[in-house]
Design a binder for these strands. Structure first.
Lengths: 213, 213
DNA sequence: CGCAGTATTGACTGGGATCAAGGAGCGTGG
DNA sequence: CCACGCTCCTTGATCCCAGTCAATACTGCG
């Protein structure tokens, strides 16, 4: 009853709350492109692990600017933003499958060791991203972004970006035009190859690392 | 013996490692202005709680730019940056007393609940700071900074900043000149009063909140 | 084919960085 | 007590990177 009363806008948490409590391993959920996973201000009852696909967590400021806080890809855990309620919103960047577990179960399982490890990892990512946003040029940000996704792809030099230019811009604290221009520059410098706008080949990762610092 | 071999540059960890293991509540340490608490790359064996004073955690980039990741004041816990070794350096902003506990003891105590809470708090601060650095004007950053320290001071409108303009600049991702100019602007707009360069009175916190958004 | 959404490119603007000079605070020593 | 030197802060002038505005090109899809 509670779940119905507090979730009239969204059927998903309702479904989850009805799951047998014994099922601590959680449940798999599927989301389509741009589908909302949770919204800022919603009660924070679950933790999510990416099985496949990609997720963006973000915040929209009062003037409409959007800051993407993090992209989560296969294996990443997210949803621990905020205390009792979410400080961020989360959406699927593309077709995405998630493992969803109850937040309290996740934080308490097995001496909380997995929870702490996941939290530490997310925290360290956030710190790294903060350092990037501090005082870096557009070129440094884009280079760091590409190298990050190269690493996530297992070190392969051909990357398929799941997200749009707008997503990248909002993640790096730049405009879509600046991101586009920077890609073009890097291509002109023979450091990347833009096969299509979503498919990038890193021609010279070492040079990108030098740019990133 | 281990402790001596691996800490010839710094006597402090040596001292800590020699403490009886039974003393899980930790030990108090005192640091003078600008004194290093730990350095980037050092083994990450302890967690710190601020008893009094203020601490900055930061990273110096290869070109000399410094990004201050966070200021820690009374009650804050820090030192969980990095996994086995510190990703950041930490220094006392001014005379500071810390409670120092062993990292493993801290992460395992009482079902790890306090550790998770401390970690979540630091994480949420990092997220908030990231949002600030994303795409905000100098004015918005400074306003947010002042309101943050107002809150830390318990909501009093007269704030004594423990740190220099350079520290503030490196924290907000601005230059010292821009920080100074912004303070001057806010004073001209009667929103703050600069009694001295370290002592600020917030004349109109509501206006600052509007600037911050 | 035409349409809509997305990406690229160009011209111009502006906020903050940079370079440079001057002022304020403060401890030290005569 | 003041003079001196040092550090930190403030102010001014100019420059440049990225934002803004605008037009064009690309892409996928009905």
């Amino acid at each position: 009853m509670n779940a119905i009363a507090f979730n009239t806008l969204d059927a998903r948490p309702f479904v989850l709350d009805r799951l047998p409590a014994a099922n601590d391993a959680g449940v798999r959920m599927h989301y389509g492109r741009d589908e909302e996973i949770f919204g800022e201000g919603e009660a924070s009852r679950h933790v999510y692990k990416v099985i496949s696909g990609a997720v963006r967590t973000y915040r929209v400021l009062s003037d409409g600017r959007r800051q993407i806080v993090e992209f989560h890809t296969t294996g990443d855990v997210f949803g621990l933003d905020g205390d009792r309620s979410h400080a961020l919103s989360a959406e699927a960047v593309r077709e995405t499958t998630l493992q969803v577990v109850r937040r309290d179960a996740f934080l308490q399982e097995q001496g909380a060791e997995p929870a702490i490890q996941a939290l530490l990892k997310t925290f360290h990512r956030a710190q790294a991203h903060m350092l990037l946003l501090g005082r870096h040029t557009a070129c440094e940000r884009v280079a760091a972004f590409l190298l990050d996704f190269r690493e996530r792809a297992g070190g392969v030099d051909a990357i398929d970006l799941p997200m749009s230019r707008q997503d990248i811009a909002d993640y790096l604290g730049l405009t879509i035009e600046t991101v586009s221009r920077t890609f073009t520059q890097l291509q002109a410098a023979h450091q990347i190859d833009l096969v299509s706008c979503r498919r990038v080949i890193l021609r010279n990762p070492a040079a990108l690392e030098r740019i990133r610092e």
